[in-house]
Simulated scan of single mutants.
Amino acid sequence: MSSHSIGRRVLRKAAAPATAVALALGLSIALATPATASGTYTGKPFVYGDSLLTSDWDDEGIVDVSTHRTSDVTCLWQTILHADGYLPASAVDGIFDDQTRLATVNWQRSRGVNPDGSVDRATFARAGQRIVDNGFSSGNRNGRYQGTAGSFLVRRPAEGGNWTFIPPGRGFVAAAYNWRTC
């Protein structure tokens, strides 16, 4: 028997009592985020892509007042709202607040997306259609989000990888779901 098989058996045995206790207490164990469980999200910690720039954002997670509320993906979304004239630069801070929610509803309404104030797969996909491919340099696929009131730079590794973007007044920021540097 290989050490990998033994390790897996030990892990299963160790996890079984904890699962039984949780179930006995009426607790549910969530092994995936709601977006992952519904099949709408890759589950990666960053906005990730490996195809055409304009279709890379069609499998992203949810960003709203309760999910990834404080994150650099929220900052990416706010930068999109700013480029389209829905938020001032001063509101691009990586916190999905009431102002961001209202701007999101208005953005969605104007683009024929369900105006629920939650940035989901369909909303990200619609925004991704506004990315202009600027080609390759230094191992990156470079682009620009072309909004109705302005634009900003985006990039990811040429062969696929994590997206970065430039919010107003800053340098490149990684589009991460689990932290906020914006």
Rank of each mutant, 00 (worst) to 15 (best):
R8I: 13
Y48R: 14
Y48A: 13
D59H: 12
R170P: 00
P168T: 03
A83E: 11
Y177T: 06
L31V: 10
D84G: 03
G85V: 08
Q146Y: 00
T104Y: 03
S5Q: 13
R101G: 03
A89Q: 06
P157Q: 00
T123W: 14
T19N: 05
F124I: 05
Q99M: 02
S3G: 06
D84P: 00
Q146I: 00
V21T: 15
D50R: 14
T100Q: 05
K13M: 08
P34R: 09
V65F: 11
T40E: 14
V65R: 14
G160M: 00
Y41D: 15
A176K: 04
C182V: 07
Q146W: 05
G147H: 04
G161D: 10
T54P: 01
S66T: 15
A91S: 12
R155F: 02
V119I: 08
A175F: 04
H82D: 08
R121V: 07
S2T: 15
I95N: 12
R8M: 12
C75E: 07
I62F: 14
L53R: 09
Y145E: 07
V154H: 10
A30C: 06
T19A: 14
T54W: 06
L81P: 11
G39L: 06
P17N: 04
S90R: 04
R111D: 01
D64L: 01
V63A: 03
I6K: 09
A83L: 11
A91H: 07
F46Q: 11
A89G: 00
T36E: 15
V47D: 03
S66P: 01
N106R: 11
G139V: 01
D56A: 08
R101P: 02
L153K: 02
N106H: 07
I80N: 13
L76K: 09
S151C: 01
M1K: 06
